[in-house]
Design a binder for these strands. Structure first.
Lengths: 133, 133
DNA sequence: ATAATAATGCAACATTGTTGCATTATTATA
DNA sequence: TATAATAATGCAACAATGTTGCATTATTAT
């Protein structure tokens, strides 16, 4: 926790620790609303600034779901920063409970597009999750 | 154009026609800001309502890009409504010009997740587009 | 041409995210 | 461990984005 912040060369503060704690005890990705609920009392501006920093430092990654709110989830250990994520997982959005899961897949599909240089591929699946079936 | 609106059983109005015209002459997906620029003078509320309706009716689909604004693009002919899209294309986001392309792929990857019922798969690639290379 | 119905446009509001700045906390150094 | 340098926090104010209610106007079915 503190080790993570130290490795990213950013200051260790109570607020940042509590944000990390929230994500650590959670298996699914969180919306900002959910984070706010977990926090109890807090300053909205500090929250936004913290989330922005965590995204820039590769601590959290953002998942944009069409027709829903943005979700955030912890990055893998080896994400250097915002533009160098290294995850081989896909994002699953449940239409019933609307939870978003980060799920590992063995074989991550290769996408080849003539004329385009593909740097990263993000896969989102929609359907019914394990708990809702 | 008018045929499309008629087939969706919604009224044919000047505003809706002009929105469809903007999308027809465009090859890439559009942000709301870009639509507004194309429109010239317009009512913001009517625009939001029109876009919402078009999404519900399966005329437009929404592309949510992490760290960027939502984009909209025309659906394929056979999209019935919001929850029944039938496209075999992927969305490509250029890191240089930040355009979003809808690109067809021959082989659309199958995603299997134990315990999860996958209904739809959305693939987003990031990199450098044809024009920017 | 007319009645029924839906779309538009305005005002007002709600939500989401940002900037500047004074205060407070963290960190590096002596 | 005390102090200076520096970064984070929290407040106010603002900016951007999206929504609701309602009167007016346009479209459609007859």
């Amino acid at each position: 926790m503190e080790k993570l912040l130290r490795s990213k060369k950013i200051r260790i503060t109570d607020f940042r620790i509590s944000i990390l704690n929230i994500f650590n005890k959670q298996s699914t990705a969180l919306s900002i609303e959910e984070i706010e609920t977990e926090l109890g009392q807090f300053d909205r501006i500090t929250l936004y600034r913290t989330l922005k920093l965590f995204k820039e430092k590769g601590i959290l990654h953002e998942i944009a779901i069409a027709g829903s709110n943005v979700r955030l989830a912890l990055c893998e250990q080896n994400c250097e920063d915002l533009h160098h994520h290294h995850h081989n997982h896909i994002h699953f959005h449940c239409v019933l409970c609307s939870e978003v899961y980060c799920l590992d897949v063995e074989t991550y599909p290769e996408i080849g597009l003539a004329g385009f240089e593909v740097q990263q591929v993000e896969i989102q699946a929609t359907g019914i999750c394990k708990s809702c079936r």
